[in-house]
Each structure stands twice: as structure tokens, then as C-alpha cells.
Design a protein around this nucleic acid. Sequence first.
DNA 1: TAGATTGTTAATCGATTAACAATC
DNA 2: TAGATTGTTAATCGATTAACAATC
Lengths: 227, 227
Amino acid sequence: MTAHPNAVPAFRREIPDATVTRLPEYLRALTDLAERGTTNVSSEELATAAGVRSAQLRKDLSHLGSYGVRGVGYEVDHLAVEISRALGLAQNWPVAIVGLGNLGRALAAYSGFAASGFRVAALFDEDPQANSTPVGDVLVSPMSDLGAVLAERRISIGVITTPASAAQQVCDALTQAGVRSILNFAPVVLVTPPGVNVRRVDLSTELHVLAFREMQNERPASLEVAQ
Amino acid sequence: MTAHPNAVPAFRREIPDATVTRLPEYLRALTDLAERGTTNVSSEELATAAGVRSAQLRKDLSHLGSYGVRGVGYEVDHLAVEISRALGLAQNWPVAIVGLGNLGRALAAYSGFAASGFRVAALFDEDPQANSTPVGDVLVSPMSDLGAVLAERRISIGVITTPASAAQQVCDALTQAGVRSILNFAPVVLVTPPGVNVRRVDLSTELHVLAFREMQNERPASLEVAQ
DNA sequence: TAGATTGTTAATCGATTAACAATC
DNA sequence: TAGATTGTTAATCGATTAACAATC
């Protein structure tokens, strides 16, 4: 039995990661426009507001569907709704934060989450002292309750803000409890079972990249590769 | 006067951004290895520890120079020193943090910076009340002193942790004061003069990308693009 | 209809991976 | 020398940009 040589693969309608990363930015720009009372926008204007080229914006949007009108542009409200829907914003995702040091507490108190469709639904720390200090109206649970609490509150997104030394262990506990999406602030490469999505934010790395470019500016190009 | 057709462009020895972003990870992996007493490592092992392919690791390192030995591998300490040098880690960059809400204070207190070659050298907030609460041994200066303090402490890297509404204004003040490298945590696209490097970290965006994939997993692929 | 702007195709660019000659 | 592994070249892959036909 031979497959047709030009057979189209059954399903291959993936939206590139690079595009998904820019969608929230488009949404933010649209929200700004709406607040200023703008009802219609061209790809050129919206692209400028979001810091990209218009061709890229149109290409990105084309992955979602066809929500513009040729010769006219996009209706701000409508496009915002469509992007929100694509991003699953209506769902108000419950999120768990593990590790309540300075960063963990700052994130737990961050008001931007609520505005973006996320809700801090559980907090964990292994230090019993941390357990006695709630953040807002969310109590801090001990690590031993992780599985039970995640299941009960139907949490599928975890944020790791522990020290590097604890991160892998926490990651194991999260995946064990069925979490398949992890945002990791600890400076470690996490090992996860297949099917688990990990994104890492590393503050030092960001500074390193800046410092590197800063250095390049300071010294003449001719020295760039010399030892 | 005709240029030689195969003339090599005078200087074009740029290291790709993607490579620079991975260098700190390699360095971290090397530090781990050194702590465990490992003195030698192959590209295969180091790549695994850093979460990349060995071909990519070798390609990345080739931008810096030739620090391995064929048939043997890399000397852990030596390679670490070379990467540190390439990243400018020896310099102990002074950094300013503007905006001392929860996140700003968390960053100011973050011990990881010191370990990575950065030093929190100045803090700013427009709220006079914030000015009275130092973080560690660094006093909080009023925004009006920004230019003077940056000049005096020779600061060229700024971190913006203000609310979105203040970010552009702060950015203007920083660039005005000669800062050309900015790490922006506020959810805005900053407009800067040419030559200024901005990197943005956006917590909501990271969660959005995770939520998006989470959604894709939940529903069948055949619905992915349907409206 | 004429003018404008989208959605999409094709061209370009850059980054990743595979493969292997160089060489310890 | 034989075995191993780097540094680099060439092939592949994917993402960005330019250009324009479709169409409001």
C-alpha cells in the first residue's frame, strides 16, 4: 500500500511559538487603542504600536483567521476578542506559585495576572514559617499538600520561584500532580517527562546579554574576537 | 576604482543574539561541573547539561574562539574563564533599579545578581515614602537625582520595574542620563533613541504562551483553527 | 470606480542540525 | 597508530520580509 506522494499530512495547523509570543503584545496594543476611543486600526498602525513590522503582524494574524477588511483595516474590539479567545483568556486560569521568597511573594501580589486572565489559586512553601503568612487572601500550603491542593483547585499551570537547589524536586512534584505547564524562575535546566511545557525566565541571563552588548559598544570592533 | 568582487567586509564578526543568550547557561553548567570536581568535559556532555544539542554548543563556542582539544574535549575551568570573559563578567557591572514596588524590591534583594557579575548600585522611586526604606545597604534616591547618581556611580545598565504608565518617562530619563542598556519589566513597548538596547521580560506573556499550549492539548487538533 | 489595505505567496535571511575533515 | 572529539562546512529548517493579487 503506497501513500500518495503529495499527500497532505493529516493535521499540521500549528501556530509558531514566535507568533504566540507576540499575540499578547498585539492584545495589549489593542486594549490601549480601545481605551483611547479608537475603533478601527490598520495593520501598519497596530504594528507600530506593538513594535513589529506590518507584514509580520498580518502574517501572525493570518494564523488565527481572517479578521480584517481589505481596504479598511481591523475593528479594534473584534480583533481583541479574537486574540483573547485564541489565547484562552476567557478561562481565567488558576495558577500555583511554589517558593515564597521575595520573588514568589512579589509575583503572588502582582495585580497584572488578574488583568491577563490568570488567578493565583495556590501558594506553596516548605518553610512552616512562610505558611503562616498569607498573601492577599490566599493561604500558603505546605509542600506535602501539593498534590491534593492542585487536584482540588484544578490547577494545571505552576510557577517555580524556589532556589535553584530545590527546583528540580519541585518540578517533579508538579508533574507528578499532573501539571504540564511550568514557568521556571530558578536558574536550572529542568528535566521533565515528554508533553510538559517549560518556559524559563532568567534575570541574570537577561542582564548578561545587555552587558555583552554594552561591552561591544565600549571597545573597538577590531578587538571583538582577539584574545 | 572597482572593489574586489570577493572582498571580505571590513568588520562583521558579530556574535548572534541567540548564541549570547545561551552563553550564561553554558557557564552555569560549567560551574556545576566544577563544583562536582569534574575537570574535563566533552561537547556532548556539556550540551546535555545545558539542554542543547552538541552541534549547537560547538557552533556557539566557535564564535568565541577555539578552546577545546580535538579527541579530548574542554577543560572545565578554562572554558568557564573564557565564557566569563566574553560576557564581561569580570567587570562587576553596577546596575540601577527604578521603581520599588514588590518586584523592584525583590530584584534589589536578589542575591543571584552578585554571583553573576552584577551589583545593585542605585535604587530610585518617586514615592518619598519608598525613599525612606533602604534595601540592604543601598538607599533609595528620589527620581530627581537620577542623572546625578547614575553619573557619579558610573551606571550604564538600568532596570525598569515601575507600573506601565510610568515606564516610558523613566526610560527617557535613563537614556537622557546616558544609559544604553535597559531591562524592562513593565508591559509596554519602549521607544528609545537608536543605539539603546532594550530587553523586556513580561510575566503575563510567558503565562499566555503556556496557557495557549495548554489549551491546544485539551482540545482535539481538528478544532484548532475552527471558529 | 479609484484608492486603500488585507491575506498570501514567494524571496530572503538567519539559525539549527548533520556530517566530516582536521587533529589531538 | 587507532580512537575520539573538536571546529567548520554544507544542508536543512523555520522565521521574517517584500511584493502583490484579491477585494472591500
